[in-house]
């Protein structure tokens, strides 16, 4: 594995439980991801982009082949710990908890990752600021925020425990062009300034034009 490679997908194949024997969603996928770079995974619908993302994020672990995070096989590590410490996930539909405020959503993530020795509230507010959100929105329930604001909260949440990898599934799919550019700027900064590995699953040409590496997926 190269020096900067943080995640390696090694000959991974996957098919759904109810699929026929040879009907693979993913077949022999081999990718490598490095710190400090942004990646786009492109492809038509049904090519397995989101499936690959769920395998990388450890939400699904029954697949053929191996995925390594820092040389450690995901099949052999605690995936809850992996998700709440090393990897931040951002969804197209944000997946925030609607009954919590913006601040509480970010802080809950820190609680789950068992962060100690920091002022969680201060860190959450600083994260909000870093993703371009006004602090006055901190105590507002997320459902009362716009799509762009919710997505920024989701990004702030994913960064709250300082993971190495940011996985984003169509993060700008529900947003306008202007907001998309702003979000992409945040991702770029995360990779370049904070040395994160940002992996974006997208359909958007604008997104794929603004990343360092593009992986295109085709039907197997």
């Amino acid at each position: 594995m190269k020096k900067n490679v943080i995640l390696k997908i090694d000959n991974v194949s996957y098919r759904y439980k109810d699929a026929k024997k040879d009907e693979y969603t993913l077949k022999n996928v081999n990718y490598e991801f490095e710190l400090g770079k942004t990646y786009a995974i492109k492809g038509k619908s049904g090519t397995g982009k989101t499936t690959l993302l769920s395998l990388i994020s450890g939400l699904e672990n029954k697949y053929e082949g191996n995925i390594f995070y820092k040389n450690e096989n995901l099949k052999k590590i605690n995936l809850d710990k992996y998700r709440n410490t090393y990897i931040g996930i951002i969804f197209q539909s944000y997946n925030l908890l609607p009954h919590l405020t913006a601040l509480e959503n970010i802080m809950l993530s820190m609680d789950i990752s068992n962060l100690k020795g920091i002022n969680k509230k201060e860190k959450a507010l600083s994260l909000m600021e870093s993703v371009g959100l006004d602090k006055s929105l901190a105590n507002r329930r997320v459902l009362k925020l716009s799509g762009g604001e919710q997505q920024r909260i989701a990004i702030a949440r994913s960064l709250s425990y300082n993971p190495d990898i940011i996985l984003a599934d169509e993060p700008t799919g529900n947003l306008d062009k202007e907001t998309e550019d702003e979000i992409m700027k945040i991702f770029e900064n995360l990779a370049k300034k904070e040395n994160k590995c940002v992996i974006i699953v997208t359909h958007s040409k604008n997104v794929s034009d603004n990343v360092d590496v593009v992986y295109e997926m085709k039907k197997s």
């Binding site: 939400l59 809850d80 998700r83 709440n84 410490t85 996930i89 997946n95 809950l108 990752s113 949440r157």
Partner: peptide, 15 residues
């Protein structure tokens, strides 16, 4: 949905 989100962001089943 709440359970799904909590599990996704790494909360264990036990918790």
């Amino acid at each position: 949905y709440e359970i799904g989100v909590l599990r996704t962001i790494g909360m264990s089943k036990f918790k």
